[in-house]
Amino acid sequence: MKVSIYRYNPETDKEPYMKEYDIDTQGKDLMVLDVLNLVKEKDPTLGYRRSCREGVCGSDGMNMNGKNGLACITALSTVAPGVLEGRKPLILRPLPGLPVVRDLVVDMTMFYNQYEKVQPYLQNDTPAPAIERLQSPEEREKIDGLYECILCACCSTSCPSFWWNPEKFLGPAALLQSYRFLADSRDLATDERLSKLDDPFSLFRCRGIMNCVSVCPKGLNPTRAIGHIREMLLERGV
């Protein structure tokens, strides 16, 4: 099959280019990461991140035939019609909107900065009990669909609002984590967290485009979380 991969090495290339590879997949419905590993055996200069190869570490977010996702859990048959059969090329590009370090590797600094801004850790200064803090199954259920985020950046880098204002708009991933702590019955910093979000950009730059929802490889819904934060801010306002 034909694989077309975005290549850029800052030491040798003036500008990025697409490089074509012919890879024998023996007709198997491999994961995109398996295909990349085959390419790398032929061309060790290709750079990409990978670790768990099972969709839980979030290393190999990339753009595959126009859509962000994790290479390790995206089968060729699901990339686009015709890719598996070799009628169409597999086209791999780095996640959009972040600076490219090399090939498919992007500089995630901006993404991580936004994550850190939401104070992504439990805040509770009351003395801890000798055992765990109690939490009912119902309270615990409120953080389902939030804590599972793997920080792969597929969502934020598919978000036009994040492309425009990556420094000021926190982006779907960071906001999902913000809500993860707002929704946790054990966290006591609700007011402080909300105050930090109460400006025209941090949260309200979300326009409900929902690209984040359509690309999240874990099936999470940042738009809904953002909606919940909006409601909390509104309630606090009145």
Partner: peptide, 20 residues
Amino acid sequence: AVFELEHMGLPFSRTEEGRI
């Protein structure tokens, strides 16, 4: 050590009694 993890925020599943 496990209770410390819970205090750090680890979202353990819960029993009806609210325990881990």
